[in-house]
Design a protein around this nucleic acid. Structure first.
Lengths: 166, 166
DNA sequence: AGCAGGTAATTTACCTGTGAATCATCTGCC
DNA sequence: GGCAGATGATTCACAGGTAAATTACCTGCT
């Protein structure tokens, strides 16, 4: 059985005979998977959260401590400006609370409210269950190998990109 | 050697002992890889194109025929509105030209100009070479297995999502 | 003929992210 | 003590995406 990308690859190969479509086969599929995952309604959508907002809440839950906006940006792989915007919405919804540092009044310390923590606790369970369904087409063994290959790729990418930014 | 996601997974596991982090290990890495790929400057950036714009040009080159905006939307996995906007920019740059259908004056037929075609021809070579570098951390065999696993996942996702939209 | 309904493309209003500038505050040095 | 420069966070102007409404046109039915 063939996926959508396979047809695209054949077209490229026909347009440019001899072209090495191997790299596109990998990266094109990663992009396509990510795009599909982002567009699909999931438990977060039903809870009225975006993936980006959940990344903030998740970071606070994971580390189980207060975090500053800068730390949150690093933890959730986002820009500072994006974090500021998301925090405003999350605070308005009463999921996150803010405390100003006493020593250095520039810095803020964010933490989950009780409501925020309960929301995350419930959502994590739902999300994992949902993700398991999405992966159900692969055997557990295939899933493990896929995760491992992606970890390797991720390391290369972080390296390449880190270098290109300097 | 460990990737960035591995640390995150350990934190989740510590916050929720016994949580099955397997699904996150796969999907989290896919999202992270895609985000990195999107943020990184690549040959397209240097040519002043976004990935989305190149997807339009690429579709026209691949099928080597005129396409309507609706067909372009399907081919490049985008919304109609997005295609309209991109086409306007690409036409302004002289990369794409438009022809109105004679029978049905609602429909437009888009094709690459000579300049557009030459641009794509050059960029495809550069892109494949660049992608090969990004994947250089994996052996060719690992790359093949990764592509295959992703194809399987993609099929499941298209299925799951197709169902959820009905 | 002419209208009801469908379809292609575009427009509109809005939302979210980004990089650059700005504001507020702290720290080190003279 | 007080200023120069650094740093944390926010704001700003803008780019690009989306869903829903709109425009323009075609087709089939009476």
């Amino acid at each position: 059985m063939e996926d959508v990308v396979a047809g695209v690859l054949r077209q490229w190969e026909r347009a440019y005979p001899g072209l090495d479509t191997g790299p596109i086969a990998v990266l094109g599929r990663i992009n396509r998977c990510a795009a599909l995952l982002q567009q699909t309604p999931d438990p977060l959508t039903r809870a009225g959260l975006t993936r980006a907002e959940f990344d903030i809440l998740g970071a606070l839950r994971r580390v189980d401590a207060e975090l500053t906006p800068t730390q949150l940006a690093r933890e959730s792989f986002a820009s500072g400006a994006a974090v500021t915007k998301r925090l405003r919405l999350l605070e308005e919804r009463g999921l996150v609370s803010r405390r100003t540092d006493e020593r250095d009044r520039r810095v803020a310390h964010l933490s989950l409210t009780d409501a925020g923590r309960e929301l995350v606790d419930g959502l994590v369970q739902e999300l994992v269950a949902y993700d398991r369904v999405l992966l159900s087409g692969l055997t557990p063994d295939e899933q493990d190998r896929l995760a491992e290959a992606l970890a390797g790729l991720l390391n290369t990418l972080e390296g390449t990109i880190g270098r290109s930014l300097r």
